[in-house]
Design a protein around this nucleic acid. Structure first.
Lengths: 217, 217
DNA sequence: CATATTATGTTGACAGTGTCAAGTTAAGAG
DNA sequence: CTCTTAACTTGACACTGTCAACATAATATG
């Protein structure tokens, strides 16, 4: 099953055969919004376009989302769940030591920024989603706490308890995020020219600079 | 003189006293656009709002900019000039060794992202400006080459000639940009709580992780 | 200086947007 | 089976960017 399957557990939406009520329009709108977003970009995103794609009238979404930004909030929330899922998927392919797991997590972060550029921008660089909304805040905090946990496993110090250890977290996050963001914005020409394998090899070297010194362990 | 003085050298624009022709509307529009941008944010930016602020009709700007994104392109270009100016200003207050100069440059980068949040986002995270336009490309490339030069001075190897040395540049840029971007997005709560002095002390430690090993020098 | 040209401004129109109000349909409660 | 209400449609409004048509004044030209 693809990660973005917003489909609810109850199979209520087979009857696509023209009925006044949709069945699960909310999920269908989020799906359509994801397609519209990657297709036309964040700047050209429109609620009416999403409604048209979902095959409903322009005002139908109002019954499921407060406004356009409300839909984008839900979409970003789903994005963070997919984001963490992609990280976990990539970690499984890596060696099982904390260092390798952290690197895998970082590479997945960067891969996400490249593969889903518009969604990434919505999640990390847009003010349109309501980042204080619980529906979004929960999965985004979960993504951050995942990094905290992985750093903890690497250093043996809990960053949530130790301010200096938290600086390790911020350093790793900033480095990975910086790489992801600049690649997303097409600004790292020297790296984008390389093959994926060579690019990731270079990325690993750079990310490792941000990792705390574990020689003493 | 404040950095953002878009005023042309020739003092053509004193006659604000209601004349059909403005004198230097192009510069006035860029100034107004900068104010509108920081006031209402990038998402709510509107050409008509800028025109109203400049005291002209809604269609007047069309004679000076191809479209709204054209105005944003010019604004971003001016932003990059101010950006480099802010870096230079901060470097002058720092010690004159390559390491200190690079740190000062990085802290100015981060300060800019915090002090001019909307302009920063326009320059680094928006697709509305035409980043391939020469008017914008020239100052943005200049900002990058400044970093290249400063890294060169630190390591003694020209990154434009040596691929490995270029990785140093990318690492430093990514780390500083990551910090700036996350602070801009209000995502580094542990750092934003601190006083400016304490915050910058922590930032220096983090940035230094990205710097190449110069112990061998 | 007088006139023609052109740059720079205005107004009005159009399609597209988000959002609201009012009406329609059908699902589910009683 | 009827009634309430959630889900959807249509139509309207204010706002946006952009275009076309027109007005004005700065400047080039005879």
């Amino acid at each position: 099953m693809p990660p973005s399957a917003t489909t609810s557990a109850k199979p209520k939406r087979k009857p696509k055969l023209k009925s006044y009520h949709h069945g699960d329009l909310r999920a269908a709108l989020i799906d359509s919004a994801g397609i519209e977003l990657e297709l036309h970009g964040l700047e050209a995103f429109s609620m009416r376009g999403v409604a048209k794609r979902a095959g409903v009238s322009h005002a139908a979404p109002a019954h499921h989302f407060e406004d356009t930004n409300g839909l984008l909030t839900a979409l970003a929330a789903q994005g963070f769940k997919d984001f963490v899922a992609a990280q976990i998927k990539r970690e499984k392919k890596a060696a099982n030591d904390p260092h390798s797991q952290l690197i895998a997590s970082g590479l997945a972060y960067i891969e996400f920024a490249i593969n889903k550029p518009a969604l990434y921008r919505l999640m990390f660089s847009s003010k349109r989603p309501d980042h204080s909304n619980d529906e979004l805040l929960t999965p985004s905090k979960a993504a951050f706490q995942k990094l905290v946990r992985q750093t903890y496993e690497l250093t043996g110090i809990d960053p949530n308890e130790d301010g200096v250890a938290m600086l390790d977290v911020l350093a790793i996050w900033s480095m990975v995020h910086g790489l992801a963001d600049l690649l997303n914005a097409d600004r790292l020409k020297p790296l984008l020219g390389l093959s994926k394998a060579k690019r990731e090899a270079a990325l690993v070297h750079i990310i490792e600079r941000a990792l705390p010194d574990t020689a003493s362990l």
